[in-house]
Amino acid sequence: MPPTQNLRLTKFGQYGIYLAFLILCIVLAFSTPRFFTVSNLLIIGTQVSINALLAFGVTFVIITGGIDLSLGSMVAVTGVVAATFAHPDTYPLAVPLLAGLGAGLLFGAFNGLVITKSKVPPFIVTLGTMTIGRGLALILSKGRPISNLSDSFNFIGGGNIFGIPFPIIILIVAFIVCAVILNKTVLGRYMYAVGGNEPAARASGIRVGNVKMWVYTICGILSAMGGILLTARITTGQPNAGAGFELDAIAAAIIGGTSTSGGTGTMTGTLIGALLIGVISNSLDLLNVTSYYQQVVMGVIIIGAVVLDGFGKKD
């Protein structure tokens, strides 16, 4: 059946998020003089970076038809692990970085292993590991924030290169790498296949378990990058950090057009989703709207985005 009445809405559903983002930016540029300044845009970029990293990770997961609720806990665990090795005059910078990233890799791989071997739904497995992760972060830090970190470590969260905040550089590099993985590699193609129709993917000779292992592992590594960034920015390893981050990340992916039923989604969409969330909360800050209202606005946007996405699928 050819597409019919909703053709215009369909088009809007496909590009609606980009359009909405553009319109919002234009409106803000004219209505709020402080919005369109270099320093404010750099602030937004820095604020968005952690959520965007997590959102990239969870986009991979959602495309394969899964979900990862343990992102926020992984941020805490990896931040604490990195902070443990980041005191001044102890280890070279590479040690806390590799320890943090390694912890994220192991945590993600553990998620993937349990999900593929136990056949328990990812929602439940990662709900469990979310709690496990939070506990681990508290155990490793003995429940106390780990402060007194080296300057070189803190540079990751607060430094600039040619005037550009380091987190933004990480964000851009991560975006490019993730987009390449998704669009140009065999693994990326297999992610869409597994999420689009898992039995058919298996019957096509794809090692579905391997694909899932990779996806959750990559998600763990990206969470670790987020954890390290956060720790360096607040110059403290906080066992309670990152609580609720998973929801913002999932929201960014969904606003960006990733279907929760799997099989569709793009990194560009997710990036725009994360930026949209960042711009809105920034502008509400500039307009002196209290954070209570910000949460209400954000919720409305998430639902609105999915409704639009629904129009995009009607064919």
């Binding site: 140009k184 590699t185 065999v186 693994l187 990326g188 193609r189 297999y190 869409y192 296949a193 689009g196 129709n197 039995p199 058919a200 993917a201 019957a203 096509s204 000779g205 794809i206 099989g263 569709t264």
Partner: peptide, 28 residues
């Protein structure tokens, strides 16, 4: 159920079982 990935294109479906011959390292 077992044949097609409905959300993917004709090309992506048709090459799905033979990616080993359509790859260069990890890249397509």
């Amino acid at each position: 159920g077992l044949g097609l990935i409905p959300k993917m294109s004709v090309k992506d479906n048709i090459t799905l079982s033979s990616m080993n011959r359509h790859r260069k390292g990890i890249f397509i």
